[in-house]
Every structure is written in C-alpha cells, then in structure tokens.
Design a protein around this nucleic acid. Structure first.
Length: 423
DNA sequence: TCTGGGGTCCTAGGACCC
DNA sequence: TCTGGGGTCCTAGGACCC
C-alpha cells in the first residue's frame, strides 16, 4: 500500500505577512488581489469574521475598518521566497515529492515508515517547517492523494489532531468519508456538487456507494478517478518535475480600464517580456501564442468587446524582441474600431519545445545564436540591476496602466534595503 | 466607480476526408 | 439533385484546482 502526505501551509499569504509583523499574530489579516481588487487570502480570524474569498474590497472596506482587520496588497516576491524556503525543507523528507501549488507539496512516504512511526515522522517534519520558516503547516496522510487531501481537511478543522491527520485503515477511511461533505472532496467543484445534490448525494460516502458504471456515465473519467481514489485505489499520477504546458501572463487594469491602443500595446509588451523570461527560465520555446484583451464582464453600461487571437510562429522562440513583434502585429490586426474600455489583457504561450532543439526553418532569416546571446546578456544585466533595467522602448516607463497596490509590505527576504533591523 | 492570476484536463462540435 | 455514415483533427469553452 502507498502512503502519501500532503503538506499544506495554513493561510499561506496571511502567514507570510505575519512572520514579519508579529504583532498581528492573533489578529484578522486579509490579502488583496492585484489592483487591490478583491480578497484572495484570509487568516483564520478573518475567516471567522465571515469574510468570503473573492469579495471585492469596496464592498467591505467599512467592515474591515470597524473590525480592525489588517489589510495587505499581494506581495508575490515575498510569498515566492517564503514558499521556496518551505518547499526546500519539505523535500528533504522524501526522495519523491511533487510541489502542487505555491503552498502545497505531496510527499511519497511509501516504505519510509508506517503506523505510529509515520505519524511521528510527520510531526517532526511539521515542527521543522514551523521552526525554520515561521509558517504553520498541516499534514494529511493516506494511501491516495485524494484521501490525503481529505485527511488534511480534518487536520485543519479539528485541533485535536495537532496538524497531522492520518487515514491508514478501513475503519478510519469509512468514518472519514461519512463525515466529509462531497463538496469538500478534492476534484468536486461547484457545478458537480449541484448535480450530485440533485441525485441526493451529500457525503463522500454516498458518492462511493454508487456504481462505477453510473459514475463514469454521469461524471466522465475525471469523476471516476476521484471515485476510485476515495475507495483507496491510487490512480492520480503526477510528474515529479512537470514542465509547464502553457504559460500565461495577464493582468486586470486599474479603475475603469484602458481605451487606447498605445496603452494596451505598452501593457502587452511588458507581459511579453515577463512571459519570455518565464519561457527562458524553463529552457523552452513556444510554437503557439495567444493574445487577448477583454472589457469588464461586470459592466452592462458600457460597450463590450473581446480580442482573442492565436497565431503559430514560423519557428519556436523565447526571444523577447521577436515575440513582441508577433504580439504587436496580432494586436493591431485584431484591434476593433470604436471606443472600448479594456479591463484585462494578456498573452498565453504553448506548444513548448526545449530551447536546444529548435528545428529552424529554411526561410528563417534570424541569426538564432546571436539572438540567444543577446537575450542571455540582457537577462544577466537585469538580474543584477533589477527587473527591466534594460527594456524595449515600447515597454514605456511611466507604467500608467500598472497596478494599484496601496497596502504592500516590503521585500523582507529578497531585497537588502528592506531587511528587518534588530534593535 | 471599484470585482485576481495561473494552471490542467476533458469534451462537444465543427471542418474535413473518404 | 437527391441520398449516409464514420473517422480524425482541431479548438473553444467548461470545470476544476490553488
């Protein structure tokens, strides 16, 4: 039998902020999305106040003030760095691990220990992470990943588990399934839950009592995988080091949005720069590229428009200048006459190939070696002097379209000038 | 007035071919 | 002009995750 552990940071973004603001230890904390738009993370105290995920800030601004809630703009540099510290500690506890998200990691603990020994192993792991980083975590252990996720739900909900919950025999499995709402099962979302509700399926246990055939018919292969995993059959496999199949860089624009082509051009050029950097960092080139821009779906008082155009590159690339050229050409070709307030835009790249295996085109006139050398040099300069110290002219420098973030904490861990002073 | 960003996987349906 | 079915490939969009 397999043993998987899911290690999940508690209220990750809020916990990161609290590491550097200890006075907020028992206080409600919320984190805002880009543009300070809506709530994307909450401390347990904030959850207890009934603040829902995704609530627009303007709707609850007064409520936050009244309840003395600490408010932060998102600081992804800080969260990314804290995540790296946590993941590095976790990965020392098993040769087989898989980082599932910024704040979660699966460990394959098969054969490392079992029963009470496995429990102690994970308790010591939890202590190491909390002491080493200041971030509290919860660990769920079970023979399948879906059951491990369920175990971590219980670990978070019931304090008696002290952050480590294990489902390792039939009695515990059945008990857990009967206590678990089917909507809380990993892989069951809102829509599926609605359908399940219609069939009178309330708990994970109810779900597992249906026949395999029926599940397959109503919920396709995805539902069937979840069904099997809940029975204890390990069938969700993951790559240990997954290469991304697509990379997306997109943003919403502040306030009403942007109307001018030149502003969207500037924004998209910056997104392209970021996207090409992500491509180069995983040593990939992309063959396909999508450019998109939308007006706000929440507004019916202004005209709506959307641009969504995919192109195929003659030769796969990860070069900023070259990709920018394609993006500009596509945007200008798709630009719609009339005045529209674009609220969001971005680019997606996919169909990746390794950057050392590019099949060049006979008609390709670009000197690929020269291009790669230039990109490498610019990346090195920017690493040393700050992102986009060297940039394309069209990227602009006033960044008028750029993000609103009025409550941002400092880069405590990644910028020397923001380091904490000890008196 | 203000409402996130970045992923994966699956399927329905259109285009095309025989 | 009428008449059919089956296969593949592609893509937009849905559903889910954090």
């Amino acid at each position: 039998m397999k043993s998987y552990a899911i290690c999940d940071c508690d209220n990750f973004f809020a916990s990161c902020e609290r590491v550097f603001a200890p006075s907020l230890h028992d206080k409600p904390v919320v984190i805002l999305s880009n543009n300070d738009g809506c709530i994307i993370a909450r401390s347990s105290e904030a959850k207890a106040l009934g603040i829902a995920m995704g609530t627009p800030l303007y709707q609850i601004k007064d409520f936050l003030e009244k309840n003395d809630v600490a408010v932060f703009s998102s600081n992804y540099t800080l969260y990314g760095d804290m995540s790296r510290r946590v993941m590095s500690l976790l990965s020392k506890y098993s040769p087989v691990f898989w980082q599932y998200s910024i704040d979660e990691m699966f460990l394959d603990l098969t054969g490392i220990a079992s029963g009470n020994d496995l429990l102690s192993y994970c308790k010591s792991l939890r202590k190491t992470v909390t002491q080493g980083t200041g971030i509290p975590i919860t660990i769920g252990i079970a023979p399948t990943k879906t059951l491990a996720k369920a175990a971590s739900k219980f670990g978070k909900k019931y304090k008696g588990f002290k952050g480590v919950c294990m489902i390792d025999d039939e009695t515990k499995r059945i008990k857990a399934l009967k206590m678990l709402n089917v909507s809380d099962v990993w892989g069951i979302g809102r829509r599926t839950n609605k359908k399940l509700d219609y069939f009178g399926i309330k708990t994970a246990w109810d779900f597992t009592q249906k026949s395999e055939k029926w599940i397959q018919k109503e919920f396709t292969v995805t539902g069937l995988k979840t069904w099997k995993e809940l029975q204890g059959v390990d069938c969700i496999n993951v790559d240990e080091l997954p290469e991304k199949k697509s990379i997306c860089t997109s943003r919403s624009f502040a306030d009403q949005g942007l109307a001018d082509l030149s502003q969207i051009e500037e924004a998209l050029t910056n997104f392209t720069a970021e996207c090409s950097r992500k491509l180069r960092s995983q040593h990939s080139c992309c063959k396909m590229l999508t450019v998109f821009a939308y007006t706000s779906r929440f507004r019916d008082d202004v005209p709506q428009a959307s641009i969504y155009k995919t192109i195929e590159l003659p030769v796969p690339s990860n070069d900023r200048q070259e990709l920018t050229g394609y993006v500009m050409k596509t945007l200008r070709a798709e630009w719609k006459a009339g005045t529209y307030l674009y609220k969001k835009a971005g680019i997606i790249v996919w169909e990746m190939t390794p950057d050392n295996a590019i099949q060049s085109d006979l008609l390709d006139t670009v000197d690929r070696d020269k291009q790669a050398a230039l990109a490498k040099t610019i990346d090195a300069i920017n690493l040393k002097n700050g992102q986009d110290a060297v940039h394309l002219a069209i990227q602009g420098h006033d960044k008028s379209w750029f993000l609103k973030c009025e409550h941002k904490s400092k880069q405590f861990t990644t910028n020397l000038k923001d380091i904490i002073h000890v008196k």
